[in-house]
């Protein structure tokens, strides 16, 4: 029994650990075995946790969806109580995707601008404290963005929305009926402000890694600063910008509190982004959780699973892009 027990770890473990036992010619020391066991056990524990997350969420979701008396994907309602529960994620999917897209459209160009400002435009003495401050801002809890959004941003957006309505109201997307600006567009703006620091901080690091030689060569050929950036910094940093944006997108999709405080939700798909209404996955879970019974909680778990899958897809795409970049550089 004992020989086989010591032989198995010898066969499986990687070559790095091999010289130890190969030189001594004996079984490995107990300390080594315990240590390897602990660290490999932690790795396996992580895999088990991930599997458990997927399994349990799916299990509860199946319970919920099989009890749903309407189509889970197309229903424009969330009524998970009573004898004939009817709920669907159409509104939530729409709201989540639209608000995250608005956030991306606003945040990514601005974040790239700030990153360029810090890495190439700002005076030297200003640049490194600025980078520091941006990193600190990335750590501000989202509930504080939510509080600020609800009590400061919302009252200040009414004027801008009225103006957008005057000039762009005919499109239908930007019509605004007055009242508090607790709409998907406000959520998008707040999410943009929230993900700015993180996208900036990642892009800045990529820009700082751009090969100095390329920049100097371009400058020596008489290129202006913008031409240097366009020809040597941006091509190098493109995939970094994309993965930073994906990181931000993942945050925007899964954000709960900043959305829950700012949005006044409703279960309608509203073509006007400036008028209140709509909802997102995470916001809906936060709003409906306290009054949900067990089945209602299952229904919310089902919507959480959809959110989980969406963020997985986004992260997977980001990972693919990063992997491709590694091949090139």
């Amino acid at each position: 029994m004992t020989p086989s027990a010591t032989a198995t770890p010898d066969a499986a473990p990687p070559p790095a650990a091999a010289p130890d036992s190969a030189v001594s010619g004996k079984a490995r020391r107990p300390g080594d075995r315990i240590f390897l066991g602990l660290s490999r056990g932690s790795g396996i524990a992580l895999l088990v946790i991930m599997a458990a997350i997927a399994a349990f969420l799916t299990y509860r979701s199946v319970l919920a969806i099989s009890g749903d008396h309407a189509n889970f994907f197309t229903t424009l309602d969330w009524n998970a109580t009573g004898t004939e529960p009817k709920f669907g994620i159409a509104v939530l999917a729409f709201g989540t995707v639209v608000s995250a897209l608005i956030a991306m459209v606003i945040a990514v160009p601005v974040a790239v601008g700030i990153a360029l400002f810090i890495s190439h435009y700002a005076p030297r003495r200003l640049a490194s404290p600025l980078g520091y401050v941006i990193d600190l801002l990335a750590a501000v809890p989202s509930i504080i963005y939510g509080l600020w959004g609800a009590l400061f941003l919302v009252p200040h957006l009414g004027g801008l929305y009225g103006w957008l309505d005057d000039y762009l109201g005919w499109t239908g997307v930007f019509s605004y009926g007055g009242g508090a600006a607790r709409s998907l567009f406000t959520v998008g703006i707040l999410l943009a402000i929230m993900i700015l620091p993180i996208v900036t901080s990642v892009s800045r690091e990529v820009f700082l890694q751009a090969p100095r030689m390329h920049e100097e060569a371009a400058l020596a050929l008489g290129a202006t600063r913008w031409e240097v950036i366009r020809m040597s910094v941006l091509p190098f940093g493109r995939s970094g910008i994309i993965s930073a944006s994906m990181l931000g997108l993942g945050r925007a999709l899964g954000e709960t509190m900043a959305v829950a405080t700012v949005l006044s939700p409703s279960f309608l798909i509203n073509t006007s982004l400036l008028d209140p209404g709509g909802g997102t996955f995470a916001q809906n879970i936060a709003a409906k959780f306290s009054e949900a019974d067990t089945f209602g909680q299952d229904a919310l778990i089902a919507s959480g699973l959809v959110l989980f899958v969406i963020t997985l897809l986004v992260n997977g795409a980001a990972r693919l892009i990063i992997a491709r970049r590694k091949e090139y550089s």
């Binding site: 778990i301 959480g304 959110l307 989980f308």
Partner: peptide, 22 residues
């Protein structure tokens, strides 16, 4: 493990909450 650590990084906080809830 490397791959799933990356996946775990992207879990929205509310989904982690829902998992423990379930």
């Amino acid at each position: 493990v490397t791959f799933f650590v990356d996946v775990m990084t992207g879990i929205p906080s509310i989904v982690a909450g829902l998992f423990i809830l379930s």
